[in-house]
Design a protein around this nucleic acid. Sequence first.
DNA 1: CGAAAATAGTTTGTATGACAAACTAAAATT
DNA 2: AATTTTAGTTTGTCATACAAACTATTTTCG
Lengths: 144, 144
Amino acid sequence: MQHDPSIPDTGSPLVDHLVQLTYLIQTILLEAGAEHELSFIQIRLLGILRDREPGMQELAHHLNLDKSSVTGLINRAERRDMVERVPSPTDRRSFSVRLTDKGKDIVRTVGDEIERRIHNAARNLTEAERVQLTTLSAKMLYRD
Amino acid sequence: MQHDPSIPDTGSPLVDHLVQLTYLIQTILLEAGAEHELSFIQIRLLGILRDREPGMQELAHHLNLDKSSVTGLINRAERRDMVERVPSPTDRRSFSVRLTDKGKDIVRTVGDEIERRIHNAARNLTEAERVQLTTLSAKMLYRD
DNA sequence: CGAAAATAGTTTGTATGACAAACTAAAATT
DNA sequence: AATTTTAGTTTGTCATACAAACTATTTTCG
């Protein structure tokens, strides 16, 4: 992928750079997950399951997907033994989704790889600049 | 989509924030393109074609896709009258891909919408902070 | 020059990813 | 107890992506 200064050239340097940065990080995530044949959405799924055991509904909300899309996503992840459906003890319609041991392993490995690669991409930043970038990102993420 | 502090929780605040920021911007891009039913990859395609008339090969390289994937992408975009294949005068095997007038319209409209939405997401940043964020992004994008 | 190799792009087959509408089964409401 | 709501799946359709095989040119080079 090219992170070319002139794409997409909207007229606002901030917007251009943020969009390009998004493409860059997305590429990094895909490369980090490639070893385990993880798609972008699967990486997001594993990230969410890292510290949660959500139901399908909740998962659909987190991922901003239709619930029927989540059915397929979880089916494929379950077939690969990365997650499992755990029946709810109180509601026989529902269950929660949980990482298997294999899933946890993958999360760790891929998580380390993501961290390594992103830090490498940020290697030209000083420690102070990294803190700055984190702070500025937070201001966009947790606004109001 | 939730931009929740605890996803994906890799241990590095910089990494976590950048990944979350990526999810946020991706959502913004999709929302900005929704009016015209544009997918993420189509938005990237239009961004690239904004100031280029690449061949299929070149496009595959820019998008980091297999050339056969690009065939499909361009077929669908052509069917929607957003782009056209322009035969090369010197090589009868090849052509370049160009925005149609309709494509240019869409690029303008969606580009404006993206700009509007990203600036809105950055509304808590001062002008100095915006410049900082742009500069820091550039240091990651154009390293070495 | 002419055969062989390389290049540009498409086709074919397969899998994932996404949505909407219709559906099933269980739970909650009234 | 009947009705409505909720949780999740199924079905049908289309977009996205890849790899391998293919077609048609262009290039290389003996």
